[in-house]
Amino acid sequence: MQDVNLGPFRRIALFGGIYSNYLSLERAIALAKAKNVDAMIALGDFGAFGPHPDRTVEILRASGIPTIQGNYEESLATGAENCHCGYTDPRDNAFAQISYDYTREKTAAAHKAWMATLPPQLRLTIAGKRLLLCHGSPRKINEFLWETTTPRPFIEKLLSDHAADLIVCTHTGLQWQRFTGPGRGVVNVGALGRPANDGKPNVWFAILEERAGDVAVDFVPVDYDHARLAREMRSEGLPGEFVETIETGWWTTCLEILPAKERARGRF
C-alpha cells in the first residue's frame, strides 16, 4: 500500500497508545490545541487496558484526527484471537489476553470496521525532513523500539530502508528520542494510556515542530483525572494490577519484555 502523505507541517502533536484512556485523550487534545498545533495524529492502540474502549474511538472519530493502525486495531479489525502485542512471557500474555478479550467484546462492530480502513503508516514533512509515522516500527507493527536497545546503526538502516529522515513510533509505552544527525533519528512518543513506569500517574504525548530549520521534540506531560479512570476500571471488573498502574505510575504487568535498563528504572 502506498503511504499516505499528509504534506508539510510546522507543529504537530503525536499521541501514542491510548489504551482506552479517554480521559487523558480529552486532556491531551485540549493541551495540544492550546499549543497551537497544525495537526494532531494518533499512532494506534486506541483500546486495551482501560475501560469503555468505544469512548476513545468516538472522540478520535468525532475530532477527525488522522490515525494509523496499531496492533490492536489490526487485531480487532481482522477478528484475531489475541492482540499480537508481542509479549514473550506467559504472565504478560495472560494479562494481555484479559485486556484484549474485554476490548474486543466492548468495541462496536462499526468501530472495528472503521479500524480496518486505517493506514498502517503516514508520511509528512517538518522543516523539509521526511517523517514516517508508524505504530511499532516501519517494518513490523508490533516491533518494540526501546531507548536502550535501538542503536544508531540500526536506526540508520531503518531510515535508509524506508526512505525517511525521522521515524515516529509508539508501542512500548515509554517516550524517548535518539538522533543520528540533524533531523535524523527515531522519536518514540510514549503513551497517553498508561504512565511511564516512573511512579507518577501522569501520561505523555509529543510535540514535533520546526525550530531553527530543524525538527525539535518536546514531550508533554498530561495530568488528568486518573482517580476517576481507576474507579471506572474497577467497576468494569478490570484487573487490580491495571488499576494499580493507573493510580501509582508503576507498571505491574508486561514487564518481562523490558530491556535491562528500562526494567531497572521501574519498581516491579
Partner: peptide, 8 residues
C-alpha cells in the same frame, strides 16, 4: 555489523 545495521 555497523554497516549492516545490526540491532543487538
Amino acid at each position: 555489523a555497523e554497516a549492516l545495521g545490526v540491532k543487538e
